[in-house]
Simulated scan of single mutants.
Amino acid sequence: MTHRITICTSCRHKGTDCRPGYELIDKLRTAIAAAGASVPEDFEISGVACMAGCDRPCTVAYHGTKKATYLFGDIEPETDIADLVAFARQYAYLHDGWCASVDRPGKLRKATLARVPAAIIALEESEARAS
């Protein structure tokens, strides 16, 4: 199973030039490495130029093969690392990535911007389409 955490690197705090994405990437990589085996799957952590969460910086997405994707906003490198690591631990165990907001750790209960179901491509047999 492939897991990825993507962090916006262009988000800025309103009214400032502060872009916390790179700091968040560094802190989260360090924290997940320190968590060791308590996070049972590997997570690739990378940045992306924009995830269109500009009104709620910094935005963070969790993706997994055949799993729902989550987008969180208002994430702070100084205060939210423990919640992000706890969600990585939880997300690794979720078969389809689906969980209720009340089951997400700490701040992530209210910081969810989107939950996108896993992509499912429906294929129909040619006879069914012909009828």
Rank of each mutant, 00 (worst) to 15 (best):
Y62L: 05
A61Y: 09
D96R: 12
R56L: 05
W98H: 09
L94A: 11
T69Q: 11
D96W: 06
D74Q: 06
T79N: 11
A82N: 11
L94V: 12
A61G: 06
D74W: 03
A82W: 02
L71G: 08
H95V: 11
D74R: 08
W98D: 13
Y93S: 13
Y93T: 13
I81G: 01
T69H: 13
T79A: 10
A68L: 07
K67Q: 15
C58M: 05
L71M: 10
H63C: 05
T79E: 10
V60H: 02
V102Q: 13
A82F: 04
L71P: 03
A92L: 12
F72I: 04
D96S: 12
A92T: 07
R56F: 12
S101P: 12
P77I: 08
D74Y: 00
K66N: 12
Y91V: 10
A88M: 11
V60E: 02
H95E: 14
K66C: 07
K66I: 00
C54P: 01
A86V: 04
T79D: 13
W98M: 14
A88S: 15
A86L: 08
V60Y: 02
A52D: 13
Y70V: 14
P57E: 03
W98G: 04
Y93N: 15
T79R: 09
G53P: 04
Q90T: 15
A88N: 05
T59G: 00
C58T: 14
G53N: 03
P57V: 00
D96H: 12
G64W: 04
G97P: 03
A86T: 06
D80E: 06
V60L: 02
R56C: 00
H95L: 10
F87A: 11
L94Y: 07
L71E: 05
D103H: 13
D96T: 14
R89W: 05
R56S: 03
A100G: 14
V85L: 06
G53R: 03
D80C: 01
D55W: 00
F72A: 02
I81A: 02
A82P: 07
A61M: 14
D103Y: 08
Y93H: 09
V102A: 13
D80Q: 02
P57M: 00
Y91A: 04
A61L: 14
D96Q: 07
Y70P: 04
T59M: 02
A88C: 14
G64M: 06
P57C: 00
Y91R: 01
T69C: 14
A82I: 03
Y93E: 13
T59I: 01
A100H: 14
Y62I: 01
A68C: 12
S101A: 12
D80T: 02
D83T: 07
F72T: 01
C54W: 09
G97N: 07
I75C: 13
Y91L: 10
G73C: 04
R56H: 06
G73A: 05
D74N: 09
R56N: 03
A82R: 06
